[in-house]
Every structure is written in C-alpha cells, then in structure tokens.
C-alpha cells in the first residue's frame, strides 16, 4: 500500500518539527494511541488502537525516526502487530515554509499482513487515509493553540 498527501499546518516548520518529534504530544494526537514510550534515541514503543467503527484492533509496535534533517525532513519507520494482523511501513516527511505556515508533504509505503490484508483489502487504504487525516487535523488544532 502506498500513501501520500500534503497538508497546510498553521505554524512555521520549526514548531511543526517540534511537535512531530515530541512523543508526549504525538501520543495525544495520534488517533487511538494509548502509549508512546521512548525506547532509545528516536525510537519509541507504541500501543495503538487502530481502526474504524466495528473493525478495530490493538497493535503493539515501534516508531522510529531517522535521517532527521531538522526542520526540513525526516524518515520514519513504523511497525506494529496485533490480532488482526501487522503493519510495517516506512515514510518520508518534508516540511516547507510558506508565509509563516508549513506545507507538509508525506509519502510512504506500508506492508499490511494477516487477516486485515486478506479481507479488509478494500478498506485498508481508506482507513489509513482517514487515520492520517485525523492526525493532521488534530495536529493543526494543537498548533493553533500555541
């Protein structure tokens, strides 16, 4: 599964960067995130409840940032598994300033396996998109508060 998109966030890149790399705040913004505990530099242990409506499951996994070039770009790796299956993905996030705001572009590729992959195929991409949308909507809200 490939995902990409872009968002405008109401803050300059430095502030967006700070938000995206702060596990405490990230945990609050990530839909369904129950825990995000540092496990090393740029590496976190996560417990997330992902899903939509009736289809949801708990996933345990790790989130890693690497190739960080603040406040311009970074790559991230996400892996998680739970009863409905597993997700392994890598992505790239790029931030650009535009009139005091941030244009954020992301692109990524994920491997989804297990039951979700076999039967939820039709919905996975939509669900993933929805989760990303929710995350950035929440991030925008959070940035507005600052």
């Amino acid at each position: 599964m490939k995902l990409s998109g872009q968002y405008s966030l109401p803050a300059p890149p430095a502030k967006v960067w700070a938000l995206l790399t702060d596990p405490g705040r990230l945990a609050k913004l990530l839909p369904g995130c129950e825990r995000l505990d540092p496990e090393g530099p740029d590496r976190f242990k996560a417990a997330v409840k992902f899903g939509i409506a009736a289809i949801s499951g708990k996933y345990a996994g790790t989130l890693e940032f690497f190739e960080k070039k603040p406040p311009r770009s970074m790559r991230m790796r996400l892996s998680g598994k739970g009863l409905p299956g597993f997700v392994d993905g890598t992505g790239q996030v790029e931030l650009a300033e535009k009139g005091g705001q941030t244009e954020l572009r992301y692109s990524g590729e994920a491997q989804v396996g297990g039951m979700v992959a076999a039967v939820g195929q039709r919905m996975i991409e939509g669900a993933a998109r929805k989760i990303v949308d929710e995350f950035f909507a929440a991030a925008a809200e959070e940035l507005k508060k600052e």
Binding site: A54, I55, G57, M115, V119
Partner: peptide, 11 residues
C-alpha cells in the same frame, strides 16, 4: 456484524 466478529476483526 457477525462476519466481522467471526474474522475477529470486531471483538
């Protein structure tokens, strides 16, 4: 609902 529950996608 039941098909999702049987797949254990819904619990």
């Amino acid at each position: 609902l039941l098909p999702l529950m049987k797949l254990r996608l819904a619990q």
